[in-house]
Simulated scan of single mutants.
Amino acid sequence: MRRLVVLALLVLPVLPLGAPSAQAAPRTWHVGPSRALTTPSAAAAVARDGDTVLIDAGTYAGDVATWTQDDLTLRGAGGRAHLAADGQSAQGKAIWVIAGDRTTVDRIEFSGAAVPDQNGAGIRLEGDGLTVSRSSFHDNQEGILTGALPDSDVVIRRSRFVGNGAGDGYSHNLYVGAVRSLSVTGSLFAGAVVGHELKSRAARTTIVGNLFDDGTATASYSIDLPNGGRSLVAGNVIVQGPASENPALIAYGEEGLTGSNQLWVVHNTFVNRRDSGTFVRLTDGAHARLRNNLLVGPGDLTDGAASSRGDRRVGLDGFRDPAHDDFRLRPDSPAVDRGVRVPPRWRPRWEYAAPAGLRRRPLVGRPDLGAYELR
């Protein structure tokens, strides 16, 4: 036995002294005006797969970058790092073009992206997998824009998308192409310029515990799911403004159904401030399950094939402060204890908490209608 061990040791390769290991350990890079790397683009030039880039809070005007590495974490340090496009773009596309896979972006602010093609984005995603948290996208032609990436999962948490859009109707606060999945929670979508607040072509779309509010902007749909897909819209406050250029709040399948056709719209608070509209617009061949939604303002619940249970039209007097988008229930609200049972997999487990956050939705006895459970 001892002889076999010695022979095995003799055939092992011997690395020369000082030779690099097969895979270097991940590194952390610090970026800021007083650092060796003064801009995020400088870090993009030296980072390797798996590295973390910490960007000091402050404004980085005109600094744009392309990130090609996989498994990167890009995070604001000591506050939010603001990337103001200031007339610049990476590859004529975005402030950041992310071509690597499985990228995490945290506490970064993107503003002012504009390109001749009218789709300048805060982030253009070209790799598989993106997680964005605690970040802000405002006054860009697109907030985030992705291509058709069938193996990509996009996750948005606790972020803000405000005033994005080029005004052409083809650019939006958030535009996710044909990816594998999109999940959006605890986020604010407001004031899209002509385009939609959120547009998703994902095979699976999950939108839970968010606030959508057009304000006085000319936004179109609050949520557009143009190719259908397996979709859950639950626990959201969705407010269509009086200047909205399209009377529907949610649209499903308007550009042709592809793949799965399954839509659950559950425990949302819908508010229509136009003089007419449709809360859930469905294309021919689509079918939706609508449960425990509150409807405020004029308009039809749906114009297509749907089963509806527990959906109820109410006035504004049952909410705490609707003028300031506080649609939590008052104790005397007719929505209290009026909900029907919803299968656990389609129930919202989160509620939106202003300005961009989440809190657990309690489950005690019979559920309340709408986006909030009375506490």
Score class of each variant (00 low, 15 high):
Tyr352Phe: 14
Ser111Met: 02
Ala113Gly: 08
Thr131Tyr: 02
Arg328Cys: 01
Thr59Lys: 13
Gly215Gln: 05
Phe327Glu: 13
Leu145Asp: 01
Ile98Lys: 00
Arg281Glu: 12
Leu17Lys: 07
Ser307Arg: 09
Gly357Thr: 10
Gly127Gln: 09
Trp350Lys: 00
Val271Ile: 12
Arg273Ser: 08
Ala217Asn: 08
Thr302Val: 11
Ala94Arg: 04
Gly78Phe: 00
Ile250Pro: 03
Asp51Cys: 06
Leu37Met: 14
Asp325His: 09
Thr39Trp: 07
Leu130Thr: 03
Glu245Ala: 01
Phe212Asp: 13
Asp213Phe: 00
Leu363Val: 05
Pro242Cys: 08
Gly357Ala: 13
Ser231Met: 01
Tyr372Asn: 09
Ala25Asp: 07
Val53Thr: 11
Leu211Phe: 10
Val239Tyr: 07
Ala84Phe: 05
Thr216Ser: 15
Ser333Gln: 06
Gly256Glu: 04
Gly365Cys: 07
Gly167Cys: 03
His324Ile: 05
Ser183Thr: 15
Asn140Trp: 01
Ala19Pro: 10
Arg366Leu: 15
Phe189Met: 15
Leu72Cys: 09
Leu295Lys: 01
Tyr175Pro: 02
Phe327Met: 13
Gly177Gln: 01
Leu290Ala: 06
Phe110Lys: 11
Val115Asn: 04
Ala45Phe: 00
Ala114His: 10
Trp67Val: 05
Phe110Glu: 12
Ile238Ser: 02
Arg341Gly: 14
Gly285Phe: 00
Gly50Asn: 14
Ser152Ala: 14
Asp56Val: 08
Gly370His: 04
Ser220Asp: 12
Arg157Thr: 06
Leu374Glu: 02
Ser222Leu: 11
Gly241Val: 04
Ala43Thr: 10
Gly297Trp: 02
Leu17Glu: 11
Leu7Ile: 09
Asp153Ser: 12
Val314Pro: 10
Thr269Ala: 07
Ala335Arg: 03
Ile156Val: 14
Asn210Cys: 08
Arg274Trp: 01
Ala61Leu: 09
Asn210Met: 00
Pro242Leu: 10
Ala121Tyr: 00
Arg134Met: 06
Trp346Gly: 03
His30Met: 11
Glu142Pro: 05
Pro348Gln: 12
Asp311Gly: 09
Arg320Ala: 12
Val193Asp: 11
Asn227Ile: 06
Gly177Ile: 03
Arg309Asn: 13
Ala36Pro: 04
Ile98Leu: 15
Ala84Ser: 11
Ile123Phe: 00
Pro322Gln: 06
Pro298Cys: 00
Arg328Leu: 00
Leu9Tyr: 09
Gln23His: 07
Met1Trp: 10
Ala203Met: 13
Arg347Ile: 05
Ala356Asn: 15
Glu351Ala: 13
Leu290Pro: 06
Arg313Pro: 06
Asp284Glu: 15
Ser260Ala: 13
Ala47Ile: 09
Arg341Ala: 15
Arg180Cys: 04
Gly58Thr: 05
Val208Tyr: 02
Val155Pro: 01
Gln262Asp: 14
Asp101Phe: 02
Asp300Tyr: 06
Thr28Lys: 00
Arg158Cys: 08
Gly62Tyr: 07
Arg345Leu: 13
Thr258Asn: 11
Asp153Phe: 02
Tyr221Ile: 02
